[in-house]
Amino acid sequence: MSQILVFNNEVAAAVEAIVDEAKPNGLFIITDTNVRREVLPSLAEQSPAVARACVIECEPGDEAKNLRTLSEIWSRLVAGGCSRSSLIINLGGGVVTDMGGFAAATFKRGVKFINIPTTLLAAVDASVGGKTGINFEGLKNEIGVFREAVAVIISTCFFGSLPREELLSGYAEMLKHGLLDSEEAVDMLLDFPIENCDEPKELLQLLKKSVAVKQRVVEADPHEHGLRKALNLGHTMAHAMEGLALKTGSHLAHGYAVARGLVADLVLSHMKHGFPSERLHSVAAFVKSRYGAPEFTCDDYDTLIQLMRHDKKNIDPETINFTLLAAPGDIRLDSTATPQEITAALDITRDLLGC
């Protein structure tokens, strides 16, 4: 059964309706320290269900998405008497929805959960589609399961206080969806004033269109046997960049890695499938002006390629698999590239982005 997507800036009312229908025998909220401080109090004032829930708090940031934190969540669920008839609310960004969803999916072989994303990145990507998991041994999302939330409440009311980096991180995933969709969708995204948007309803409608692209793909291929690989556009490169950042102890927001990964994949798309040069340059110019130049150098190429070999979508360790495009909306699944082609694409990407 497909998850219910609720696009509504009246979040408390949406929570009450879902909880009233589910009638759980226990209610738990998984969140992080920042969201508990900045979002949870006002939501609890408006929602009796939220106010009475048992709150499980974890540290913010991707570094916390690990086995230790997961074990702590399980322990708190045990202590709180969570059963298979309980309901878990994951309130937060992508780390919370990824890890909270995995905790719910594996506790007692599955507890129902809903996601309330509080960042644009989580709203457009992590909270939707049923992918859950944690990082392991320095690799992104290495351990996880497919398990959809009962519902996802998507709202723009939490985005007003997000820093620029958080907004742009989410917008990179929206740009990915636009590239998978059509020329018109890409133009709309390149022209939208995401950094100066003061119309939550306008952003909510754009977000709804973006999520619909992902939802169509997920419904056609829920467990990533075919078409869902399209959502990997930009991500083989991006996950390698994130892995490199983890190894070196540097900070790299997921969406910034995705934005740069999209440019690298469009370069490969131009090399292998004739993706239009003009569109490549328009996307690269947008990424350069918002996300800046990548931090890696040519000395990091071997490490990046080794990290790409660990991508879960590879057919075998010797073949690096990409989703590429012949044009916006013209998807080429299971495209492969040699280390030499990847090196050339990384060189061109660094040139386009101002290194």
Rank of each mutant, 00 (worst) to 15 (best):
Val128Cys: 04
Gly129Lys: 00
Gly130Asn: 08
Lys131Val: 02
Lys131Cys: 00
Thr132Glu: 03
Thr132Trp: 00
Thr132Met: 03
Gly133Ser: 01
Gly133Lys: 00
Asn135Leu: 01
Asn135Gly: 02
Asn135Thr: 03
Asn135Gln: 00
Phe136Ile: 07
Glu137Trp: 13
Glu137Gln: 14
Glu137Ala: 15
Gly138Val: 12
Gly138Phe: 12
Gly138Ser: 11
Gly138Met: 13
Leu139Tyr: 08
Leu139Gly: 00
Lys140Pro: 03
Lys140Arg: 10
Lys140Ala: 04
Asn141Gln: 01
Asn141Asp: 04
Glu142Phe: 12
Glu142Thr: 09
Ile143Met: 12
Ile143Lys: 10
Gly144Tyr: 06
Gly144Gln: 06
Gly144Phe: 03
Val145Trp: 06
Val145His: 04
Val145Ser: 08
Val145Asn: 04
Val145Arg: 04
Phe146Gly: 01
Phe146Trp: 03
Phe146Met: 00
Phe146Asp: 00
Arg147Ser: 15
Arg147Met: 14
Arg147Glu: 14
Arg147Ala: 15
Glu148Leu: 05
Glu148Tyr: 03
Ala149Cys: 10
Ala151Leu: 03
Ala151Cys: 06
Ala151Glu: 01
Val152Trp: 02
Val152Ile: 11
Ile153Tyr: 07
Ile153Met: 10
Ile153Cys: 09
Ile154Met: 06
Ile154Trp: 02
Ile154Ala: 06
Ile154Arg: 02
Ile154Pro: 01
Ser155Leu: 07
Thr156Gln: 07
Cys157Trp: 09
Phe158Leu: 10
Phe158Met: 09
Phe159Thr: 04
Phe159Ala: 04
Phe159Gly: 02
Phe159Cys: 08
Gly160Cys: 12
Gly160Lys: 13
Ser161Ala: 15
Ser161Leu: 13
Leu162Pro: 08
Pro163Val: 14
Pro163Ala: 13
Pro163Glu: 14
Pro163Asn: 15
Arg164Gly: 13
Arg164Asp: 15
Arg164Ser: 15
Glu165Tyr: 15
Glu165Ser: 15
Glu166Pro: 07
Leu167Ala: 13
Leu168Ser: 07
Leu168Asn: 08
Leu168His: 12
Leu168Glu: 10
Ser169Glu: 09
Ser169Lys: 10
Ser169Trp: 09
Gly170Phe: 03
Tyr171Arg: 10
Tyr171Ile: 08
Tyr171His: 13
Tyr171Glu: 10
Ala172Phe: 03
Ala172His: 03
Met174Cys: 06
Leu175Gly: 09
Leu175Trp: 12
Lys176Met: 11
Lys176Ser: 09
His177Pro: 09
Leu179Ala: 08
Ser182Asn: 08
Ser182Lys: 04
Ser182Val: 06
Ser182Met: 07
Glu184Asn: 06
Glu184Ser: 11
Val186Ala: 02
Val186Gly: 05
Val186Thr: 07
Val186Glu: 01
Asp187Thr: 09
Asp187Cys: 09
Met188Phe: 13
Leu189Ile: 11
